[in-house]
Design a protein around this nucleic acid. Sequence first.
RNA 1: GGAGAAAUGGCAGAGUGGUCGAAUGCGGCAGUCUUGAAAACUGUUGAGGGUCACACCUCCGGGGGUUCGAAUCCCUCUUUCUCCGCCA
Length: 423
Amino acid sequence: MLQVPFIRDNRDDIVKRLTIRNIDAAKMIDDVIVFDEQRRQLQTQLDNEKAEMNNLSKEIGNLYKSGEAQKANILKEKTTQLKDSIKDLELQLTNKADALNELLYKIPNVPNPIVPTGNTDDDNEEVFREGEIPVLFEGALPHWELAKKYDIIDFELGNKITGAGFPVYKGKGARLQRALIAYFLDKNTAAGYTEYQLPHLVNEASGFGTGQLPDKEGQMYHVTGDNLYLIPTAEVPGTNIFRNVLLNASDLPIGITGYTPCFRREAGSYGAHVRGLNRLHQFDKVEILRVEHPSKSYEALDTMVNHVKGIMRELNLPYRILRLCGGDLGFTSALTYDFELFSTAQDRWLEISSISNFETFQANRLKLRFKNSEGKNELAHTLNGSSLALPRVLAGILENCQTEKGIKIPEVLIPYTGFEYIN
RNA sequence: GGAGAAAUGGCAGAGUGGUCGAAUGCGGCAGUCUUGAAAACUGUUGAGGGUCACACCUCCGGGGGUUCGAAUCCCUCUUUCUCCGCCA
């Protein structure tokens, strides 16, 4: 969420930059400024009355001590009225603050000026492309057929055990998935990220901290018995490590990585384009996450993009990088690069990573700050990205690396799989 | 799951109704001394709101209550520790 002082000082610029997202935020922004003004007025009034109350209380105490109970009782009567007034003001203030916050929750992050305008993913800007798109032999199959042919992923079994979107990986399929997880984690830790194993369920406060709650409640699985949520991404437990944290400038930058399963209800998704591994309710993902000094966060974003590039290069898979347009940009992000893998047998691009700079948007909600060089507490910048999402990478390997002899495992993974072919 | 104890500043730890945003120790920072460092000594050292700056207000695990007044009393939730039960 945006900071109110920032809104107050940059009203026009914010409204203008939010048009990149195709939203006219003028009314909301102006309301924020007005509500904040009113909130502050109420606060001042309340503070004054409380100060008066404090003084009266002190006086009463002194009077009792010097044995002047009579006088004290007279003062006590005065406090009754003041008490009511304070109670009333407190209520008004809470209401105003709630209204202000509700507005703030609705305002998305201000896009970086280089974010292209646009509505849909057609308007995303391709900034990089690499890797050769293989020409497949006659009779090449999409991954869901390959999964059946080599008996490595069983979608039906998942249906039986749980339901649609919960595939069962078997044999070399399971091993390949484990190999990818280990490989990604090794790459990330080699690049300086500290490996974490994080909880797969989070409480309400954490869901709120990263912005899934209250708005996207329907997207998460909710364990009502204990009021916990299954994580939709490691971003949620990972970023909440830093909720209500005050760091030293020397602690920055912080980089962490973690593998977790991810659970998404994906309500309303259906059809051919969600077939096979393309969209699941449960999938595995390795995430990287950084906390940065504000002056270094865009440099860090580039570093993260280059890091994932390096992985794709090693895997030798064709991919492209998109700069997301305003309409496609996530609510909390200021700038996002998506990695898409070309899935030859499906003849389409599959999103496998999304790397974003949230600037202070998450940090403000999380209260993640550091002591800057002036000794003041300042909000840090947060960033995160997938490195990488497993199922679509798996789909890409199956489809792009299929040969008439079977699936040829990319070189870098062979030490992890212990086999060269799935056949 | 049952019984009991506890939660205070970066840490440790006092404080059971007013003068407590909170003793004291450690740590941090600044200074004196020193060629430099250590030691010693002196000072300083939480967060949020508000203000041009002060004033002022709020915060002693979270929420609610009693009272003129709450770190202190009551209710409730959460967490931690000890004992018992269960268990990978």
